[in-house]
Amino acid sequence: MKRGGLVLFSIMGLLLAWGVLEFPGLGDPSSPASSHLSPYYIQHSLTDTAVPNMVTAVLADYRGYDTMFETIVIFTAAIVCIFLLRTFKPPASRYRMYRHMATGITLRIEKGGKTPDDSEHFERIDSVWVPHDLVIRTTCRMVIPFIQVFALYVIAHGHHSPGGGFQGGVILGASVVLFAVCFDLRRTIRYLGEKMCALLCALGVLIYAGTGILCMGLQSNFLDYSALAGLFGTDPVMARSHGILIVEIGVGMAVMAVMVMLYYNLASAGRHDEGL
């Protein structure tokens, strides 16, 4: 298998390398890829949509359908992950670990024992023992708000600088994952629950599709944001810029919730009790 695979891949690589010799050199300004469609985008995106960042303009305006179904794809991925992994059955023969807060003594309670879940003096810790690390927790407490503000900036400032809904949403999700890594999964789920995540996922997709349907209701094409000019009270060009912002907010919400949901399900194997 190994030797046959190597022979097969070397034949395939030689064929591909032979094909590559016909390609234009790297960075050729007159190559076919940059001489047919892209000059239109480069020359007209600012005058059409008032967005200096061409990538954002093409992503959310000219290719709006593509991005909408991209959002639906990642939404589907989160749902598939839930269907594959989520389980509500408690695992057989498992013990739980608790820490007495005042003294720092660790308790191990076997299955069937009385668990001090509702007591104020005990906190549940992961069964893979994690030391009580003050430095990491304090650092994360200080860093996480700045990460979240930066993520919101990335979403809102995607018109003028690199960034947009996808990047900002992923960074926002990463801040939640960082919280779950340095504290524990149960506390994170208490703040941002599973139902809330599912709601945010669906709401993000709904904002995107709803913007398109609103444009249709205003007697224009699906996702043609210039129809929203009357609602915003601006000219059609600026309305397209504002429409892109609304859509990016929807994408950011959906991506953030999907990333958090994927982490919850993968890190706890679907049980949502003990994380990384």
Partner: peptide, 11 residues
């Protein structure tokens, strides 16, 4: 630079 491949690959 041509922005179109960037958009396709970003998604």
């Amino acid at each position: 630079i041509n922005p179109l491949p960037h958009v396709l690959m970003l998604t």
